[in-house]
Design a protein around this nucleic acid. Sequence first.
DNA 1: GGTTGACCCTGTAGGGACTACAGGGTCCAG
DNA 2: CTGGACCCTGTAGTCCCTACAGGGTCAACC
Lengths: 135, 135
Amino acid sequence: MRPVGHCTIGVLSGLSGVGVETIRYYEREGLMPPPARSASGYRMYGPDDRSRLVFVRRARELGFTLDQVRRLLDLADERAGSCQQAQGVAAAQLREIRRKLADLRRMERALNGAVAACSGGTMPRCPLIEALAAA
Amino acid sequence: MRPVGHCTIGVLSGLSGVGVETIRYYEREGLMPPPARSASGYRMYGPDDRSRLVFVRRARELGFTLDQVRRLLDLADERAGSCQQAQGVAAAQLREIRRKLADLRRMERALNGAVAACSGGTMPRCPLIEALAAA
DNA sequence: GGTTGACCCTGTAGGGACTACAGGGTCCAG
DNA sequence: CTGGACCCTGTAGTCCCTACAGGGTCAACC
Ligand SMILES: [Zn+2]
Ligand SMILES: [Zn+2]
Ligand SMILES: [Zn+2]
Ligand SMILES: [Zn+2]
């Protein structure tokens, strides 16, 4: 019942916001199924492919790894008992994001302090450099 | 006038908190100078090497790329008129960190909302999954 | 004096998630 | 019928390490 694919990889790229080379990479990695091919071997995509690819893009934008995206796609395909597992994957990613946020906040504070201490003039010794060198 | 190197790569690794393989990698990449060698070919490091390596580690912890670290090291070596350039490098990195912080905060909000919407039970359709799939 | 075992050496390959060719083939508009 | 935009496969590069593989060296212990 799926309509046969009717757009090329370049058009799909425009529609989904995912680069052409990246789409082919996702296919190699098993995130996107091998699409139908035209007589001359061109990949031909249908609406299902577009939905799936947008799903992947959104998940990547939220920082999920390709492995996590694969798992989420499996769960989305199954459509049964998926909720708890999906929540597990998302919660893990949320923890990871919060860890990175804490790291970046620390980095921001430290670097901001060092940049503020440096006047930007031609002083012989730069407090910015010294902040990195000193104990 | 530099004292001849007197510690091995493993000891330097312990002193600096940088892995042995990473130190050799930094040498290949030109961040660390080729050290003196013992009669049997072991790398022998002195206090200057240790300072330099700690500098690299600190800069990496603040998110500078190896290229940026190279530039900062050059400026630190020159010890003249470096301030403005060092501030430029650091300011660029600070902008980058703030960009990443904004990204992560957006991700955290979105993902937190999705996880909260998902009860974790065995409902037929998971709002978390749908948030990724829907427009 | 021999034998562990921890260390050191070089060189190469892997990882994650792309990205960029190189060297071709296809399609369509002018 | 020709130019240029698209598509194909396959391979190699990016960044920053990390992990071998296959050796050599050194100090301690029995
Ligand atoms: Zn300064
Ligand atoms: Zn759910
Ligand atoms: Zn070409
Ligand atoms: Zn070995």
